[in-house]
Design a protein around this nucleic acid. Structure first.
Lengths: 336, 336
DNA sequence: CTGTTAGCGCGTTCAA
DNA sequence: TTGAACGCGCTAACAG
């Protein structure tokens, strides 16, 4: 059992040097003699010396890590995490990921954990059930900049990166109109998600632009559960005038809605077209996938948000006054 | 700008106490007077004091965190991560997740990062392209126990948790046989993944048990790319005797194979049945999903692996000799 | 019940 | 070119 964890002190002792010399030699400090440097590095390698990042972080009061808070590592946020990782790793930072499972209590808790871990900054997409962002306020006191992305709270003075959907939604409606659809419904997400409004705005503007009739009963709200979608579909189809195309809040909702038609109303309505947002990688394998979707570029959002974060961190390091950054990227209509 | 991060020292100064008293009071140490405890905790709250976990970890030489290494946070490993998180959080540990993207170099690097961060233990599923586990050896020197799960290296003396597939694979073949299939093919995963052998073993035993003919050309190997699957399908269908059912390595492969039939050979072979392993949540939405799949219980594997890890950690804490644990769980055939 | 002291491993002055 | 001394924030051993 060689459970001897090597330290700089140990190397210094063996080489009869001071630990500061060793510390410098390990980092190729120019003021250290070549011979010394070489023998230090040689011994370090033999002992399998690996610097204690905990000690470094602690003494420098800088953990070289950023926290990522997302509701779930589903395929959508998974792509965002890639963007975050790519940017963080390029800056020699490590990444702490936490899932909130869309619960406010968990969000509060993981945020606290991250503060205690003294992450240098945080990239966050808020939970669906978060009524406010008070729990993020302490981060300011702890000098931990926060960048919100994708699901951005509607509050001033914060850093944010998100993807506007209104224009693409207009295009989505126009696309459906060009296919001859005149009765287009929208099943939107829960009111607690601000991004829902973009969809609604684009929907109405799209109808107007294409001179299509507006039926209030064509707009439904669903939580993101399967049952919720079924209920919305029920409500949609209970009116005299039925939709011939449906815009759903996301891919999962489209899947549930299509499943509903097949199982609950087999045969009828099989000609209803679906379009949606932020495609799952497996959606294209459906026999009859949605006709189109609006790409929200999660990878780019994650990457941009992290870039904003590093700009804030660098500003903080120089004690500069950093005004909050608010980036908006354009979504894009993709026809399968 | 109130960028004053409160410390125990600061609280002690304000209250004219020593920092050890404050430290104890904050942790409800019984030897501290009620009055003192209360006033310390009151002030701590007012100052928004949050203990510096970095300092605690450093001084205790225990980071209260475990590392998780997986190839990718795809839906499969995502479920495993839930199991890991549930167990870790229950033990007041935090979780560091790293993706290797199935590349050996990245695996080596994230492992090193975790060691430097002094995680207390690691739960890992090895990369497809990892030729050996030499890079894990240093963990022993650093007293960091490692538990491999799901993709387990074929080496003695390690902790492991995996899911045996041979018996379920026999059942899978029997199920297909019961449906009248006599020509059953298997598209297996790459040789670098040991779990592939379980499938192969079960396949042959299943054929034997059901007295089905063995055709060597019915067994193909594919890397896990779409192109690889297409090639395997090409090869399978190029023989005189065609399969009527195909067992694929996983869901993605089934999707690709089915897609191949629809796109490359439309109309023909539309009666080929598929069965697979470890279902994606969205697979059930297909018009004609695989008939059945073998559940590998990733959540349970992750949870069990983490439990093993904590047993090792507790043993280590008591300086006990901990023999490695090797758990095997049974997979289960699920018919849609 | 409370205070004093030492030390965790490292980087960083300042001094030689 | 090297070394000595200090401090990061906290816990713990030992005193009182």
């Amino acid at each position: 059992m060689q459970n001897k964890i090597p330290t700089i002190q140990e190397i210094a002792r063996l080489l009869k040097l001071s630990k500061s010399t060793v510390s410098r030699a390990l980092r190729n400090h120019p003021a250290i003699g070549l011979r010394t440097t070489q023998q230090v590095q040689k011994l370090a390698k033999e002992l399998n010396y690996e610097p204690n990042q905990l000690a470094i972080s602690f003494s420098k009061r800088k953990s070289m890590s950023i926290g990522v808070i997302v509701s779930s590592l589903d395929p959508y946020f998974h792509r965002a995490v890639f963007g975050i990782e790519d940017c963080a790793y390029a800056n020699n930072y490590s990444v702490l990921i936490s899932q909130t499972r869309d619960e406010y209590d968990i969000e509060v808790k993981v945020l606290e954990t991250m503060r205690k871990q003294r992450v240098d900054g945080i990239v966050a997409s808020i939970s669906r059930n978060a009524p406010d962002i008070r729990h993020f306020e302490k981060c300011r006191q702890y000098n931990i900049p926060v960048v919100f992305f994708d699901r951005v709270p509607d509050v001033a003075g914060i850093n944010s990166v998100w993807c506007r959907l209104d224009i693409s939604t207009i295009e989505l409606v126009s696309y459906l109109a060009s296919k001859g659809h005149e009765h287009i419904a929208l099943i939107n997400g829960p009111v607690s998600l601000p991004i829902r409004n973009e969809r609604l705005k684009g929907y109405y503007e799209g109808l107007e632009k294409n001179k299509l009739p507006v039926y209030e009963h064509f707009v439904k709200t669903a939580d993101l559960s399967t049952v919720g979608t079924y209920e919305a579909m029920d409500a949609l189809l209970s009116h005299r005038i039925k939709p011939t195309a449906i815009i759903t809040f996301n891919d999962y909702m489209s899947l549930d809605a299509m499943h509903y038609l097949r199982k609950v109303k087999p045969g009828r309505y099989s000609d209803i077209d679906f379009v949606t947002y932020s495609s799952l990688p497996t959606t294209r394998y459906l026999d009859r996938p949605p006709l189109a979707y609006v790409d929200q570029f999660p990878y780019e959002q994650g990457k941009l948000a992290t870039e904003v974060l590093f700009r804030q961190l660098n500003g903080l390091a120089k004690a500069e006054i950093m005004p909050p950054e608010n980036l908006v990227i354009e979504s894009r209509l993709v026809v399968y």
